[in-house]
Computed example of a mutant assay.
Amino acid sequence: GWDVPMMGGDAANHQDLVKIAGPEAAAGYFFVSPPLPQDMDTDEAKNFLKAFKDRYKTVPVSVWAVLAGDAYKVLEAAIAEGNDDPEKIAEWLKQLKELPTLSGKMGFDEKGDRVGDFYRIYKVNNAGKFELQAR
């Protein structure tokens, strides 16, 4: 009976939220998260989603598979540049600004945080689907 807006972070970016809570209880829930795979508009993301859907007959239910692919691409690029130990890789990542990845241009600041406009706001609709609210 507590009718207040609820908001959370990117851990809620998975259909298990609706599965566990039920569509009625989850309706109206907001969360801040990396974009859902179907909301990514890079050519790399579109190609990945097509290949994924061709193989599994659905799109990924969360962004985590896509971000794992991005992590692989970043490490692959670092190693290809001759960085062969963790400290060299960490330094190389801090200068990275616009590597094309599935989720967009990848870059990091001096602390190692991702730079650029990346996070989105989603809301669970009455049918239990995640709707993009803001970029």
Rank of each mutant, 00 (worst) to 15 (best):
G1E: 00
W2F: 08
M6L: 15
M7E: 10
G8M: 11
G8D: 08
G9P: 04
D10A: 09
A11Q: 11
A11L: 11
H14A: 12
L17E: 05
I20G: 11
A21S: 14
A21C: 15
A21M: 15
G22N: 12
A26F: 01
A26N: 02
A26I: 02
A27K: 00
F30P: 00
F30W: 14
F31N: 02
V32E: 03
V32G: 05
L36N: 09
L36V: 09
L36I: 10
Q38L: 06
D39V: 14
D39F: 08
D39R: 14
D39I: 14
D41P: 00
D41W: 06
T42C: 06
T42H: 06
D43L: 10
D43N: 12
K46E: 05
N47G: 15
N47I: 10
N47V: 12
N47C: 08
F48Y: 11
L49P: 03
L49N: 07
K50P: 13
A51F: 08
Y56S: 10
T58D: 04
P60W: 03
V61R: 03
S62D: 14
V63C: 03
L67V: 04
V74D: 04
V74H: 02
I79A: 12
I79R: 12
D84E: 10
D84C: 10
D85L: 13
E87Q: 13
K88A: 14
A90D: 12
E91M: 14
E91N: 13
W92E: 06
Q95V: 11
K97W: 02
K97Q: 07
K97T: 09
E98V: 04
E98A: 08
E98S: 11
L99V: 05
T101G: 01
T101A: 03
S103R: 01
K105P: 00
G107V: 02
G107N: 01
G112M: 05
G112K: 07
D113T: 02
R114S: 00
G116Y: 03
D117C: 08
D117Q: 15
Y119Q: 09
Y119D: 09
I121R: 09
I121G: 06
I121L: 15
I121K: 11
Y122Q: 07
Y122V: 09
V124K: 00
V124F: 00
N125V: 02
N126G: 04
N126S: 06
F130L: 07
L132N: 14
L132Y: 09
Q133F: 13
R135E: 12
